Amino acid sequence: MIDVEVGRTPTGMRSFSMAYRSEFLRQWDAAIERGSRAKLLRENNLAYGTVHRWIAARDRGEWTASMRAAAEKPGRRMDSRERAELAQLRKENQQLRQKVEQAEAAQQILGKHSSSWST
Rank of each mutant, 00 (worst) to 15 (best):
G35S: 07
R21W: 04
A19V: 08
Y20R: 03
A65L: 11
R58N: 11
R26Y: 05
A31W: 03
Q27D: 03
A56Q: 14
H52W: 13
P74Q: 04
A31D: 05
L41W: 08
E43K: 10
R21H: 04
E33R: 11
R37E: 08
N44H: 15
P74T: 06
W54A: 02
I32A: 10
E33F: 04
R26F: 08
R53V: 12
R34F: 10
I55G: 03
Y48N: 06
D59E: 15
D59S: 11
F24L: 13
K39G: 14
H52I: 01
R58W: 09
N45A: 12
R58Y: 07
F24T: 08
P74K: 12
T50R: 12
R21P: 00
G49F: 04
S22H: 12
A65P: 01
S22R: 12
E23I: 05
R53D: 15
W28K: 14
M18K: 07
M67W: 02
R58T: 06
A69T: 01
S17A: 10
W63A: 07
F24A: 08
E62P: 00
G61I: 05
K39W: 11
A38K: 02
G61C: 02
S17C: 09
D59G: 06
A47G: 06
A71V: 01
I32Q: 12
G61N: 05
M18L: 11
A38G: 12
W28A: 13
W54P: 02
R26A: 11
E72F: 01
G61Q: 05
A69Q: 05
A31P: 04
R68G: 01
P74E: 04
V51P: 06
L41H: 09
A65R: 15
P74G: 03
W28H: 14
R37M: 10
A65N: 11
A19Y: 02
G35L: 06
E23S: 05
E62Q: 12
E23R: 04
R60H: 07
R53I: 08
M18S: 11
A71F: 05
Y48P: 00
N45H: 09
I55L: 15
R34W: 02
L40S: 09
K73P: 02
D29A: 14
S22A: 13
F16I: 06
